[in-house]
Amino acid sequence: SQHQEELPPPPLPPGWEEKVDNLGRTYYVNHNNRTTQWHRPSLMDVSSE
């Protein structure tokens, strides 16, 4: 059986914070524009500005 090492997730872009809601779900807060989202932001998402 193949065992895959879990890679650590990439660092969050500046201004982002990973949080967990009261149901144990992980979400991400963008403090730059005060938004939240479910999927993890990547540095590539942000660098397109």
Rank of each mutant, 00 (worst) to 15 (best):
S47A: 12
K19I: 07
P10Y: 11
M44A: 10
Y28N: 01
Y27V: 04
T36I: 02
L43K: 14
L23M: 10
T26G: 04
S42M: 08
L23D: 13
S1T: 15
W38G: 06
N33K: 08
E49Y: 03
Q4N: 13
S42C: 05
Q4S: 06
P10F: 04
T35W: 10
P14H: 09
T35E: 09
E6Q: 10
G24C: 04
Q4A: 05
L23W: 11
Y28F: 10
V46T: 13
P14V: 12
Y27A: 04
H39F: 11
P14N: 10
Y27G: 01
V20Y: 06
S47H: 13
G15L: 06
R34A: 13
N22H: 10
P14R: 15
M44C: 11
Y28T: 01
T35C: 12
Q2T: 08
V46A: 13
D45Q: 05
V46F: 11
K19D: 02
R40M: 05
D21Q: 01
V46W: 08
R40K: 13
N33I: 13
Q4H: 13
N30M: 03
G24E: 04
S1I: 00
N22I: 09
V29E: 10
T36V: 04
D21R: 00
P13W: 03
G15A: 12
H31F: 10
D45R: 09
Q4M: 10
K19Q: 05
Y27S: 04
E17K: 08
L43Y: 11
P41S: 01
E17Q: 10
G15Q: 10
K19A: 07
H39G: 10
D45P: 15
S1E: 02
L12A: 10
Y27L: 05
G24D: 08
Y28R: 01
E49N: 13
W16I: 02
Y27P: 00
N33G: 15
T36P: 03
T26N: 09
T36C: 08
R25I: 02
V20S: 08
S48F: 05
S42I: 11
V46M: 06
D21I: 00
T35S: 06
N32P: 07
P14F: 12
Q4R: 05
Q2H: 11
H31W: 10
L12W: 13
G15M: 11
E17L: 05
Q2F: 05
Y28W: 06
H3I: 15
P13R: 09
E5K: 02
N30A: 03
L23R: 14
R40C: 02
Q37V: 06
M44Q: 10
H31R: 13
S47M: 05
S42T: 10
S47P: 12
N33P: 08
T26Y: 01
H3W: 00
Q2V: 04
N30T: 03
V29G: 03
N32Q: 10
M44L: 12
L7H: 08
H39C: 11
Y27N: 01
Y27H: 06
P11V: 13
